[in-house]
Design a protein around this nucleic acid. Structure first.
Lengths: 149, 149
DNA sequence: GCAACATAAATAGCATGCTAATGATTGTCA
DNA sequence: TGACAATCATTAGCATGCTATTTATGTTGC
């Protein structure tokens, strides 16, 4: 397999793993009213409650409109609430509701076990090396987007 | 960083790279009327023209309804056509149009260069190791979906 | 003090993914 | 052969992503 095929296989597998991972989480977590994206958001709030939306989008590395809809869904489910910020009427802070806070540990455990399951048999050094490759890829993409080559 | 954090970082970065890659391709290829998924489909047809839809979905590892909409878009753009299959009135074969076939080499070059760009500085052995990790992850996910643990 | 610019959130509209359900054929086998 | 199951494509409906635009509010510079 030459480099070009290897690169194609890598990007292809990247997309495939992602789709499968999302499908798995959605299947397993449906009963809890969760999806992968929602769980990530809740875990971020469990870590530090009350960010304004634009900061939260940055923390999750998604765009604001994507966040808005995620929050709409979670708000309808009664898992988060938006509160006004005094001193800036444009902004709103996002908080976990009490019931979501009570669930947070369960969700964290669920995600942790799920990740351990799908990554079983992969040694820490291998994972670290793969993570490094992913990070460098991320950086290359970011560099390529700011300046057109 | 302990194993749990490492596993969380890995899955998080996986999703992030994927989003960024899609955004990059969509930005670069917009002028050609392409997206990442569409390009993948066209490349598959360039490799072997005329599969029936359910086989094509299998080759691309996506579900049939996802394929149907992709094909709808490409058909509107005049890049593919569906033809009846004699002997089975349920099925339809998918073919590149002449104009898409003429473009195929350009698209392939575009994708190849783009992949080389985002993976630059990553040695073949590193890429191979990372690909292996991704493949094992895929298998673990597939195993986990058939039987609930 | 006010015009111009910047920032926060939301909305609109597109593209992909999925599952579930429908419709039309085709295959099977009792 | 004739009911039942399987297969192929499609539609419907949901969830995430994105960019571009809009609305409201803040900030800054003259």
């Amino acid at each position: 397999m030459d480099l070009i095929q290897l690169q194609a296989a890598f990007t292809g597998e990247l997309a495939a793993v992602n789709r499968k991972l999302r499908a798995l989480v959605d299947e397993r977590a449906r009963g809890m009213g969760l999806t992968l994206s929602r769980a990530r958001l809740l875990m971020e709030l469990a870590r530090e409650d009350g960010p304004i939306q634009s900061d939260l989008a940055g923390l999750l590395d998604i765009e604001q409109p994507t966040l808005v809809r995620l929050l709409d869904g979670l708000e309808r489910n009664g898992m988060i609430e938006r509160r006004a910020v005094e001193g800036d009427r444009r902004a709103r802070r996002v908080f976990l509701t009490e019931s979501a806070r009570a669930q947070a540990q369960d969700i964290l455990n669920f995600l942790t076990e799920l990740r351990a399951g799908i990554l079983q048999g992969i040694a820490p050094e291998e994972l670290e090396a793969a993570l490094d490759v992913l990070r460098r890829t991320s950086r290359n993409i970011a560099a390529g987007r700011s300046a057109a080559p």
